[in-house]
Write a protein that binds this DNA or RNA. Structure first.
Lengths: 241, 241
DNA sequence: CGAGGGTTTGAAGTGCATCAAATAGTGTGG
DNA sequence: CCACACTATTTGATGCACTTCAAACCCTCG
């Protein structure tokens, strides 16, 4: 596959780029660079002077902030078609978080200056960015709600439900998108807690777990267990992932 | 004071309105309504069809989401000059959270349609909103970090430090802006936990507490205690409040 | 002075973290 | 195809942080 084909393929499935004008897409395409980020590669660090942002072609990128002692708070885990680091243009050209490849990843690197110019000159693009930022905003508001009101098993169940087919009734199943240690961090808990909390879910909400495959005996039971500690009701259509 | 004087006084100290064009401000002024929200008044509820947004003239407004059982997650507590509910224009004209007066408040009610029209027609305004949303975004990212990495006494100390004079060295003092029960909820803990955690801070970081006045014996000691569990270092200038 | 809300304190329980170790799973070279 | 190394995951034991429930205390205001 040529570089441009690869680029277009990702663009086609990226909610961010789908609404961008073809003029801007062409500019991006022509100057885009495909980056291979092997597992554990740090893409950038909080405070780095930012010149590029990234579109994920493959793999999962962990977005986090870290104390001097190395304690991490994972803010997002982003995958195919999602963008990282674009927010640096609103933060004095400094990345407000760090990003690390959690497995071998491929990223398209794009110019922040091109993005900035597009936003500044193209009103539709500014509106599009505004929608993107606003949406990310209430996703984070929800995250705070989840961490405040849901306990560990409920947060896991909530994550599972958001990955299940939203129209599923009764029996269904999902595959966890990345490994359990990373998911634990994403949900704000320790790996040991994750393991025990998932065990508890097996009993309380009637799940079967085989590796990364989760079989849900009854979506209603699971959602009742999880969504009772949340302001939203199942199916929680307005949250991604 | 006339309505318009009161309006202009608030606008003058609102970071949001300071960068808006005079044309827009006049439109807002002419159709603004001063609302008195007595203590415990619900300004709006999650999911309400939104036609107005609000600028706080006085008092503290609690922004939260709530489960069916009445458990609340407080997302923000907003005060003078801050705006609430504007984000409904990016959310299908539904408020994504509830808002309640925690004391007798005065609000200016403004038209979302006017705001929407301004954003759609005025590029500078769109860019301004973009900056506002992006900033709120990383404020929320930080909130998640704080709740993940800091324990209760550290979160309280962090809040105190953000309310202290940023150039203070050594001894200084602050007054808590609202009551301790609300502050506890704002920081994601129970009132009892707040009380005990503040006691612990008195010992660990050498504070004196008299009602809502907190005397800090040494800012360095306090920041060392709190900021060690955070990715930022004191003074944490990029966070508001 | 008494009522009521805010705040603190006490006692007990729960959930999650921590540390340690066992087990399962995966990829490697022989 | 097997043994080994390495990582991911689970399990056990224990401790701590925070919550919960209950009651006392304090402060303000009518």
């Amino acid at each position: 596959m040529t570089h441009n084909d690869a680029f277009r393929q990702i663009i086609a499935q990226s909610s961010f780029f789908q609404k961008c004008g073809s003029n801007f897409l062409e500019k991006c395409e022509s100057e885009s660079q495909l980056i291979k980020a092997p597992k554990n590669k740090i893409v950038f660090i909080t405070g780095d002077h930012a010149q590029r942002f990234y579109v994920i072609r493959s793999g999962w990128i962990k977005v986090f902030r870290e104390t001097e002692e190395g304690e991490q708070a994972v803010l997002y885990v982003l995958g195919e078609g999602e963008i990282i680091g674009e927010c640096a243009i609103f933060n004095d050209n400094k990345y407000p978080y760090s990003a690390e490849a959690t497995e071998d990843c491929e990223l398209f690197s794009l110019s922040l200056a091109v993005l900035r110019a597009e936003i500044d000159s193209n009103h539709a693009m500014a509106i599009h960015m505004l929608n993107t930022q606003a949406k990310r905003n209430w996703v984070q508001d929800r995250e705070i709600e989840h961490r405040t009101l849901q306990n560990a098993p409920q947060r896991i169940g909530c994550f599972i439900l958001r990955h299940a087919n939203p129209s599923a009734k009764g029996k269904t199943s999902i595959q966890l998108p990345f490994d359990k240690t990373l998911l634990a961090a994403r949900l704000g808990m320790q790996p040991e807690t994750f393991s025990r909390a998932l065990s508890k879910l097996k009993t309380e909400a009637n799940l079967t777990v085989k590796g990364s495959i989760i079989e849900i005996e009854d979506v209603g039971t699971l959602s009742k267990y999880c969504c009772s500690a949340c302001s939203s009701t199942y199916p929680c259509e307005d949250l991604p992932q």
